[in-house]
C-alpha cells in the first residue's frame, strides 16, 4: 500500500506544480485577482460600510453569508466532538494514563496565570471590537478569549476552570453566538431588506444606512467571537478529559 500511496502523492504534487506555470506573477498588480473585484472593494468599501479595514468589510458584510456558515462550521465541530466523546454514564473509565495531580501546588504557575489571563482577555476584547480599524475580528478575538480559559485550566485544573465556566454555559454560548449572527440577519429580513442586509438596522438604531452596516458588522463580529470562544473551550474540555469531565491535562 505504501508505494502506491507515494505514487499518488507524487502525481498530485506534479499536477499542482504544473498548474503554477500559468499563474500570474507573485503580487502582480495586473493579475485578475487584483483587477476584477478588489478595486471595487477598496474604492467603495469605506463609503458603503464605514469600515476602514477592507478585510473586515468583505468578511462580515459583502460575504457575510459565508461568514455565518463559517461560524456554524465551528459550532458544528463542537457539537460533533461533544456527541462523539462526551460520556455521562458512570462506568469504568477508559483512561488509564498517568495524570499528575497538582492540587494546591505550584504557586508560580498560578501567579503567572493570574497576571496574564486578565491582560489576555482585555486584548481579546480589543481585537474583537477593534476589527473595524485594525487586523482582527470575531474569529481571532474569540480564539484568544477561549485560549485564556484553556490557560486557566492548564495552570489550575480542569475542574477549577469548569467551575468558572460551566459546561452547560459553554454549550449555550456556542449556540447563542451563531444565533445572534443569524438573528441579526432575520431582523434585517423583518425590516424589509434581504437576509443579512444590515442596512435594515438603520430604522431600529436611528442612523444612516452606511453607519447601520458598520454597526451590523460589529454585532455579527461579537456573535462570531462568542461562538468561537465557547467552541474552543468546549473542544478543550471534551478532548482534554476524554469525555468524562473528570480531570484534564
Amino acid at each position: 500500500m505504501k508505494p502506491f500511496a507515494r505514487i499518488i502523492l507524487f502525481l498530485c504534487a506534479v499536477m499542482m506544480l504544473t498548474a503554477t506555470v500559468d499563474l500570474p506573477d507573485w503580487a502582480d498588480p495586473g493579475s485578475p485577482a487584483s483587477t476584477h473585484l478588489s478595486p471595487g472593494f477598496i474604492e467603495q468599501g469605506y463609503h458603503e460600510t464605514a469600515t476602514p479595514n477592507v478585510v473586515t468589510a468583505v468578511l462580515a458584510d459583502y460575504r457575510s453569508y459565508d461568514t455565518l456558515f463559517e461560524s456554524v462550521v465551528v459550532f458544528a465541530a463542537s457539537l460533533v466532538v461533544m456527541l462523539v466523546l462526551r460520556r455521562t454514564s458512570t462506568g469504568t473509565s477508559r483512561i488509564k494514563h498517568f495524570r499528575p495531580k497538582r492540587e494546591g501546588r505550584d504557586t508560580i504557575l498560578r501567579g503567572a496565570a493570574q497576571s496574564i489571563i486578565p491582560v489576555m482577555q482585555i486584548f481579546a476584547l480589543y481585537v474583537l471590537f477593534h476589527g473595524h480599524y485594525s487586523p482582527g475580528g470575531g474569529f481571532q478575538g474569540g480564539v484568544i478569549f477561549g485560549a485564556s480559559f484553556i490557560l486557566l485550566s492548564l495552570c489550575y485544573s480542569l475542574k477549577f476552570a469548569m467551575q468558572r465556566f460551566k459546561e452547560k454555559m459553554v454549550l449555550i454560548c456556542c449556540a447563542c453566538g451563531a444565533l445572534l449572527y443569524a438573528g441579526i440577519g432575520a431582523v434585517c429580513l423583518a425590516m424589509g431588506w434581504n437576509f443579512l442586509g444590515y442596512a435594515g438596522l438603520a430604522g431600529l438604531l436611528g442612523v444612516t444606512d452606511v453607519m447601520a452596516r458598520s454597526h451590523g458588522i460589529l454585532a455579527v463580529e461579537a456573535g462570531v467571537g462568542i461562538t468561537v470562544m465557547a467552541v474552543m473551550v468546549s473542544l478543550y474540555y471534551d478532548l482534554a478529559s476524554g469525555g468524562d469531565m473528570e480531570e484534564g491535562l
Partner: peptide
C-alpha cells in the same frame, strides 16, 4: 444575500 449585487456579494 445582504443586498449586495453579485459578483461582489453572494
Amino acid at each position: 444575500m445582504g443586498d449586495w449585487l453579485p459578483p461582489m456579494g453572494i
